[in-house]
């Protein structure tokens, strides 16, 4: 089995792991967005959605464990890559010519990823923790999940934080989507231009879709 660990610790193996976990997270985001769109259909729709997830809890728990593993590997491996790549470069050039030879999305993956990580911690603390563990405000106990969302997204700075994080998520996804294909070795003259376009459209839909929720409630929707 030693060869497996040697593979995932090689330079190509490390990016392969980023692509593998990243692809899984790309799929998760789609499901997360579709489910949460029920917020736009009012309290009953959203609360029913949360209770449906509750009804299939054992299955959800398994998915959550896989999801947690994907996030942990993606974050730790990405950090490890960033550190080793900094070391490999050593002293940088006085003049930074990179804006002329590469796009900003690809060069800022660690930065956007780090900010998304901070967001993720806040996000889980706000919703996941209260839904699953304990809610000092008692929304979850009475199945008032919708009202909890409304409460938080009416805090203006909280909603703005969400929107900023979602814009950066879009940046991260725009590079990540096509990058995963390249890492898996799927670069083709005919399909790669399409993959890049689809990746950009995907990133825009995710950023707009998720950002629309705090904005909707902040601007008085749902009341």
């Amino acid at each position: 089995m030693g060869w497996v660990f040697k593979f995932i610790n090689s330079s190509i193996g490390k990016k392969f792991m980023m692509a593998l976990t990243g692809s899984f997270l790309l799929i998760f985001l789609v499901i997360h967005l579709i489910g949460n769109l029920t917020l736009f259909f009012g309290a009953d729709a959203f609360n029913a959605y949360v209770l449906t997830l509750d009804a299939i809890k054992p299955l959800i728990r398994i998915i959550e464990i896989v999801l947690l593993a994907a996030f942990v590997i993606h974050i730790l491996n990405g950090t490890r890559l960033w550190i080793s790549n900094k070391k490999a470069k050593g002293q940088r050039n006085q003049i930074n010519g990179s804006p002329q030879n590469s796009d900003v999305f690809s060069r800022t993956m660690f930065l956007t990823g780090s900010i998304i990580f901070i967001f993720l911690v806040i996000h889980l603390g706000t919703f996941f923790w209260r839904f699953n563990v304990s809610d000092p405000m008692g929304f979850a106990d009475e199945h008032q999940y919708y009202n909890m969302v409304v409460y938080f997204f009416n805090i203006w700075w909280y909603a703005v934080l969400y929107v900023i994080a979602m814009v950066l998520l879009g940046y991260h996804l725009n590079h990540g989507f096509q990058s995963a294909f390249q890492t898996f070795g799927w670069n083709h003259k005919k399909y790669t231009p399409w993959i890049k376009k689809i990746g950009t459209i995907y990133a825009i839909i995710m950023a707009l879709g998720f950002a629309a929720m705090p904005l909707y409630f902040l601007l008085g929707g749902g009341n």
């Binding site: 990016k15 080793s84 030879n101 796009d103 096509q178 390249q182 070795g185 670069n187």
Partner: peptide, 30 residues
């Protein structure tokens, strides 16, 4: 270092070597 698919290499290569070669190598390696 490890590749992060910025494609700066392809843009600066004096011979225009395509990054599709990197994808091929990833495939071959796996």
């Amino acid at each position: 270092g490890s590749c992060t698919n910025t494609y700066a290499c392809e843009a600066e290569c004096p011979k225009g070597i395509s990054v599709s070669n990197i994808a091929r190598m990833n495939r071959e390696y796996v």
